[in-house]
Design a protein around this nucleic acid. Structure first.
Lengths: 169, 169
DNA sequence: TATTGTTATACTCTATAACTATA
DNA sequence: TATAGTTATAGAGTATAACAATA
């Protein structure tokens, strides 16, 4: 049986293509402020939800913990964020924006929202909401692939689909 | 006026989050074959559409031309792809998979499709098709931000939205 | 001169793992 | 022992720019 595969309707491809295009465009905008997309994601996440632990922030931003730790270090040195070793658990770190960090973030937010409305040109409110809710569903469907490896056997989907059977011997 | 910004309904965020999660999961699968997500994207694009020029392939894969050139070099050295300096225009390079490259790609395609169906768990065919077509529309809406810089003035959206007015002085 | 592709550089992010300090 | 975070290292991709060959 011939292999069927059409990039034009392959969801991971469409996702990456759209995401890359926005990220690249907005990234150029961020260069003026000496920021990268990842730094912006951290600022936005902290603006949205202050006083997060490093682990929580890593989840929210889709960044690796180790990457994030150094990234936060950089933001801290620039006076945009602060780390506090507080709370009940002495291992945990609590991260928040400084006033300066908040100011910069709030200057960027309207720009980001403008990009978003460009992306959604021609969409009705209903369509936009539908698209977003579908993306949430997609994200949640993949939840089980989150950690590094989940049990030796399947780091992969159930693979019970009609597709193809054999692989991995 | 207070700044309104909700990550949970911010399209670039949802896009990145979903895309990152699949890419990471599938990337772990690819490690076994000594491939990265980007290399997989190139293989898939060449499988989908053989004999592309470097520029066309860069567009299709959302990779930088310079990154791609080195990446193709690696695939060539491993005997997975071939470069031909052919055709009318002597500057152009034509890239295609080797038989071995095709074989590996065709082994990976069913796995990739399984990931896709996991992502679309619970979606009707109609919903899947709708999601995909919306992602195409989103991508196309951003077309004007593709090149590096488009005229000095706006490397940014029209910025005429009701959002916020002042910025950049 | 403009275009296609190659190569080089510096920087950023990723993936791992070793390490510290709490718990 | 397990968890939260930090730090170090090697590898990949990105962004630029300089360069070669062809148009």
């Amino acid at each position: 049986m011939a292999v069927m595969f059409d990039l034009a309707t392959f969801l991971p491809y469409l996702l990456n293509r759209a995401g890359t295009r926005v990220a690249r465009a907005f990234g150029r905008e961020l260069m003026v402020h000496d920021l990268t997309i990842q730094k912006w994601r951290v600022l936005a996440a902290l603006w949205h939800q202050p006083n997060q632990s490093l682990g929580a922030l890593a989840q929210m931003t889709s960044l690796e913990v180790s990457t994030l730790s150094r990234l936060i270090g950089g933001l801290e040195r620039r006076g945009l964020a602060r780390r506090r070793r507080s709370g009940g658990d002495g291992r945990t770190v609590t991260i928040a924006l400084s006033a300066k960090g908040r100011r910069i973030t709030e200057k960027l937010i309207p720009i980001a929202l403008d990009y978003e409305s460009t992306m959604l040109t021609g969409f009705t409110k209903k369509e936009s909401a539908l698209l977003k809710s579908m993306l949430v569903r997609v994200y949640e469907s993949m939840e089980r692939f989150d950690g590094a490896e989940e049990s030796p056997a399947p780091a992969a989907p159930t693979r019970r689909s009609a597709r193809t059977s054999a692989r991995r011997s």
